[in-house]
Design a protein around this nucleic acid. Structure first.
Lengths: 235, 235
DNA sequence: CAGTGGTCTAGACCACGTG
DNA sequence: ACGTGGTCTAGACCACTGA
């Protein structure tokens, strides 16, 4: 009896779900029943069930019982870092410009800005060896007294830039991924002569009150970027 | 005192993490200390801490204590379904062909197939209204007696096709996202005359022993597809 | 050694849902 | 009224880490 009892309960029920003995919608035995079949106290059974609830396998409904969920087969986990994609690591960057601008209407909408609010714009090119692999733009809402540190601007990822003045725990992020053709400007930056497509990743950051605080757009050369995601497992 | 005590403990510690009072690496008070400060039993404190561990905020180390984690700021949750992307829903499909083939070397490698193993190939075009929005290929390893159902082949997503003969809980999935230029064939299928880029999503399915069972590649017209992901929260 | 987290018990009371 | 899950207690023993 190496493994704790609650682990055995977890594995027992998972096995039944995996092999199809328990199907989505089915009820699993009540807690008291499980206490008897495993010969343990209720708290121990509940500890096991809590894990299964947490991993999304079952749902418990007060007064009724616990039931097997429909699997969430559209859900994936994606790791994204503009400086190190799966096939390619950025080992140097070139700062093209940093300036404080009045945002375009589009940007004002996107960042939910009031009229005269200014924004810091940072343009960079990412290199892998001597080859340019991505063009990167960041728009960061400017606050008075905001610490703008050279090193982060030049070498940091977007969350790293932000981390100087907010706890990263409090930040929410959204990614939008699309394929685009490069415009003239970007073609020049990335030395594109043919119609190489771009993988474009837009990253939007929100503070803990769900207000936007920044927007980053990274244009990866198509043959230099792949994003990987895998089904959120579950041990 | 509406909310259960363990919830209050959770919120209390989260608040301290959010506002920076507790930073990554810091120790949180010991369980016995928390028992005293909240005036509850140890199991109640542990229930709260279990949630924080589970959500990735803290890690508990036996004999030492519990510590605030580095935030996992590269992690996102992505929902993917080839039939309904964020800006565009597939409302009809055209089956181009279904056949059983001997896979190419590439495919053999990718699916880890033995020499003479055959594969079912399904080619489809997805439409939104009358407009073709994506071209889709599925390669499914053929097993004797595999139920191949017309309806699923024509209308189903990849996991739905598989679900007829395996529990979806047991399936692992991987996505690879890239940008590509269409080849002649795909340009024809999607009526592309200019150099519209493609957003290409490759979906690989694995059984519970981590052996590949199928590969799906969907080529979305660039202006008809965006993928969204958001930081895995955490309530 | 004293302090930490990990597991577990045998009770208790509650709110909820179904007959 | 009875069974369900949700919360909580006041103990216990263990293995581990650090002084």
């Amino acid at each position: 009896m190496e493994r704790p009892v609650y682990q055995q309960i977890i594995e027992d029920i998972k096995k039944k779900i995996f092999c199809g003995e328990l199907k989505p919608g089915d009820a699993i035995p009540s807690e008291n029943t499980l206490c008897e079949t495993f010969g343990v106290s209720r708290m121990t059974v509940r500890k096991g069930l809590a894990v299964l609830v947490n991993e999304g396998y079952i749902t418990s409904i007060p007064g009724k019982g616990s039931f097997v969920n429909e699997p969430d087969f559209e859900k994936y986990t994606l790791y994204y870092n503009e400086m190190s994609t799966a096939i390619n690591t950025v080992d140097s960057t070139k700062l093209i410009e940093v300036k404080i601008i009045l945002p375009s209407n589009n940007l004002q909408m996107s960042l939910n800005l009031s009229a005269n609010r200014k924004v810091i714009l940072v343009k960079r090119i990412f290199y892998s060896g001597s080859e340019p692999v991505a063009y990167d733009e960041k728009y960061l809402i400017y606050y008075k007294g905001m610490p703008v540190v050279e090193k982060e601007i030049k070498y940091g990822t977007f969350p790293e830039m932000i981390s100087k003045f907010t706890s990263l725990f409090a930040i929410k992020k959204e990614l939008t991924i699309s394929a685009q053709v490069p415009n003239r400007q970007i073609s020049k930056y990335l030395s594109l002569y043919n119609s190489t497509p771009l993988l474009v990743v837009e990253q939007k950051l929100f503070n803990s009150e769900d207000k936007p605080i920044g927007l980053g757009i990274t244009y990866f050369k198509g043959d230099n970027c792949r994003l990987f995601a895998s089904s959120s497992f579950t041990d």
